[in-house]
Design a protein around this nucleic acid. Structure first.
Length: 352
DNA sequence: AACTGAGCCAACCGCCGAGAC
DNA sequence: AGTCTCGGCGGTTGGCTCAGT
């Protein structure tokens, strides 16, 4: 039969590693090098699974690891590579010396993904939300609802509680997706000649009119089982997101990687250049080469926002710069909504 | 001071392909 | 040939920290 198991899973220590355990791993590796991890716990005097030892070494104890914060150029490279190859963290980490796949994955999930969402960019497709909804508006056949469902659920509704219910986004309930956005809005309100995503959303019944104003606390809206965040939809709307769109269009990684740019950008460029096909010609390398360098991101404001230490300040400045017009836009749009869809809104929420 | 919730990250889980037996 | 583990990987979770109330 096969090999014996590496350890008794039920009889090994789990959880956080102590400094003493780390010291044992380090001492063992320095004396014997990296070999068969299965035998490491026994030889090093540890009551741990070999797999756990390998992970501890790989993700934390390796001497070549960086433990400081991610640099702006690292952030940019992660975003660019993620756009190119998706969540293949080990491949991305290989392009970031001193970083592990776990590091990159954690950083993406806790920082970069949220940052892109705040900027109105779908972290899965790396497209502006408005474009997704534009594409969505053009969907006329049932065949595309699966992709739409995946895209919406994975990007816009990243939180568990922020998902479209299957009652809305499945092929078994296609009524609202068999027609285009325009068709549905105009069917509901023929006076709307050029419906936006806002108009499309407005046709759905309000969930609970006793709740506080929907715009400012992201209350569930569409149906009792169908929730989303207002801010994300506002970003997707052509009216509200005009400024965001402008910034996104300027966020062009191709230009960012231009040799004429700063040394930081040149550094990223050099790193990316190493992604190109080599003599080994692996599929992964081909994938990287094929995809990297064709991003449509802009740069400038967004680029500044990527800098860790200045992140909060830059984002605050970025958002506040358009705050008044943004609020005005909301109020204007709400007035319009009141006039076009009076049954949908509770008059008690007249907050302007 | 106590509580709460969000952010963060180390560690675990489960799957897969390769290879040992 | 079949069964099993190893090593690698991406996804997820548990628990710690800290800011806000």
């Amino acid at each position: 039969m096969g090999r014996p198991p590496c350890c008794d899973k039920s009889n090994v220590k789990r959880g956080l590693w102590t400094p003493e355990e780390d010291a044992k791993i380090l001492a063992y590796v320095s004396n014997h090098g990296i070999g068969n991890w299965t035998s490491v716990p026994k030889k090093a005097g540890l009551n741990r699974c070999g797999k756990s030892c390998r992970l501890r070494w790989t993700n934390y104890l390796r001497p070549d690891l960086k433990h400081e914060r991610f640099a702006p150029e690292e952030e940019e490279l992660i975003i660019k590579l993620h756009k190119a190859i998706g969540s293949r963290w080990s491949l991305i980490a290989k392009k970031l010396p001193g970083r592990t796949d776990n590091d990159v994955k954690n950083y993406w999930n806790t920082k970069l993904r949220k940052m892109l969402q705040k900027m109105g960019i779908d972290p899965v497709t790396h497209k502006p939300f408005s474009q997704i909804f534009s594409d969505f508006g053009n969907i006329s056949g049932i065949s595309n609802t699966g992709n739409l469902n995946k895209s919406l659920n994975s990007s816009l509704m990243s939180k568990p509680g922020h998902q479209f219910s299957s009652a809305i986004l499945t092929t078994t309930e296609p009524s609202c997706f068999k027609k285009t956005m325009e068709e549905q809005v105009q069917e509901y309100n023929p006076t709307v000649t050029h419906p936006t995503s806002w108009d499309f959303l407005a046709q759905f019944p309000v969930h609970d009119t006793k709740q506080s104003p929907l715009f400012f606390n992201e209350a569930p809206l569409i149906t009792p089982t169908c929730t989303f965040t207002w801010s994300e939809f506002l970003l997707s709307d052509p009216v509200f997101s005009a400024e965001f769109q402008h910034q996104q269009e300027q966020y062009d990684f191709d230009e960012m990687l231009s040799p004429t740019n700063s040394s930081t950008m040149a550094m990223a460029h050099n790193d990316l250049s190493s992604c190109n096909i080599t003599s080994t010609g692996s599929d992964d390398d081909w994938y990287l080469n094929r995809s990297v360098g064709r991003s449509t991101y802009g740069h400038g404001t967004v680029n500044n926002g990527l800098e860790e230490n200045n992140n909060a300040a830059d984002h605050a400045a970025y958002y506040s710069s358009s705050a008044s017009s943004f609020v005005d836009s909301i109020l204007d749009k709400d007035r319009e909504l009141h006039s076009q869809f009076p049954p949908l809104l509770d008059p008690s929420f007249d907050y302007y």
